[in-house]
Design a protein around this nucleic acid. Structure first.
Lengths: 205, 205
DNA sequence: TTATAAATTGAATGAATGTTCAATTAATTT
DNA sequence: AAATTAATTGAACATTCATTCAATTTATAA
């Protein structure tokens, strides 16, 4: 009885427009009214789905973190080869795929919110911790398969994450394309070096 | 003739209040009106000194980056001993001094602005680059003094910075005090290890 | 066709925003 | 004391903001 609910689909649409506008103009310059204008709908419709702007922002954070997670995804082709899986992840992280997949500006913009919003902080913390767990799992698997010789898996994983976060922090300020790619390649090499892995051949994506 | 100008002193006062409010409530929740209310002055006075809110924010960014720079300052006592100087810097960076000196939340908040504001981007880029130059200078001096055995000074300095930025990115989400300090100590050790320096004794601060 | 439930609109709200301008107060020099 | 310059106030501005609520449109099931 009654009309079919479009709730979830519509919410996602709204968040996508929110994302694209905030990517262009910044989080603080993106209002509900502007999102509505871009979608050619009434602002009150956005409030209808997200009760407050706060909730809308939480939705955006969820969306962003979901995208972020994708970078760590291992393709089916490499799922059963622990070494290839690890190489694929490292490859994805230090590649243009990163930039294609999502916007660093928004990632840092929402990250800055973690300092004043406990919910956002929890979302970020949980995501980052789960990614660490995931990477530790892969490393552990490599060790079990005799591919890697490690004693402290957790520290090793942490070193990789420090490298990632530190690398992109400065990289985001490098506008020269050549320098950007050069650095990216160096950081990838460094990651492989930390893992005592050598980049022998192409890895399926 | 006429009244003495308080301009610079007053501007600094305003920025300090801006800083403290933004630290507590976030950059986007801190308006000119709120700053004025806190100072018990008229909002138009703030506009009188900073013509637009934009300029006010630039003032804040300057203020924050100046504070940031202080962490890399070497005390007079260690200025002539290249090894001690380097140890002091590393010590300062991976210590509570960092948090005492300034707020990471605002640092990241302004950092997020770099993605949409060219001026802020330039300010950040120039600061970070000048710090790299500075560290390279110290490392170079250590090499000249036979304290350090390095070939590629620039890469070495970059590795240190990646460690710093990567470390604090995750650290800012660690709320457990014990874990925080434990990690901090480990990252400091790692920095020293990268530099092939050993932490022998206390260093004057 | 009618009942129902969700989607959507539209108008209105009050509060807060940054900014303006003229008027006033306060300090300093001649 | 008069002139001068800066500090500061106070009132007003148009905009934008998130949010409210009632009314209307649209799709689906009975």
């Amino acid at each position: 009885m009654g009309r079919k609910s479009l709730k979830e689909a519509r919410k996602k649409e709204i968040i996508k427009v929110f994302y694209s506008l905030a990517k262009k103009n910044g989080l603080e310059n993106t209002s509900i009214a502007k999102i509505a204008a871009k979608m050619d709908i009434n602002p009150s419709l956005i409030i209808h789905y997200f009760q407050t702007r706060e909730d809308l922002v939480y939705g955006l954070v969820d969306y962003i973190l979901d995208k972020y997670k994708l970078i760590y995804k291992v393709s089916a082709a490499n799922a059963n080869d622990s070494r290839k899986a690890l190489l694929e992840i490292i490859g994805n992280i230090f590649s243009k795929k990163w930039n294609a997949l999502f916007d660093d500006g928004l990632f840092y913009g929402c990250y800055a919110m973690t300092f004043h919003d406990d919910k956002v902080r929890d979302l970020y913390k949980k995501l980052l911790d789960s990614l660490r767990e995931m990477l530790m799992g892969h490393i552990e698997q490599c060790r079990a398969d005799g591919v890697l010789d490690v004693t402290d898996v957790e520290t090793l994983a942490d070193n990789i994450f420090v490298l990632i976060d530190g690398a992109y922090f400065y990289l985001s300020l490098v506008s020269d394309k050549a320098e950007y790619e050069q650095r990216l390649a160096r950081y990838r090499q460094q990651a492989l070096s930390i893992l005592h892995l050598k980049e022998v051949s192409e890895v399926a994506g």
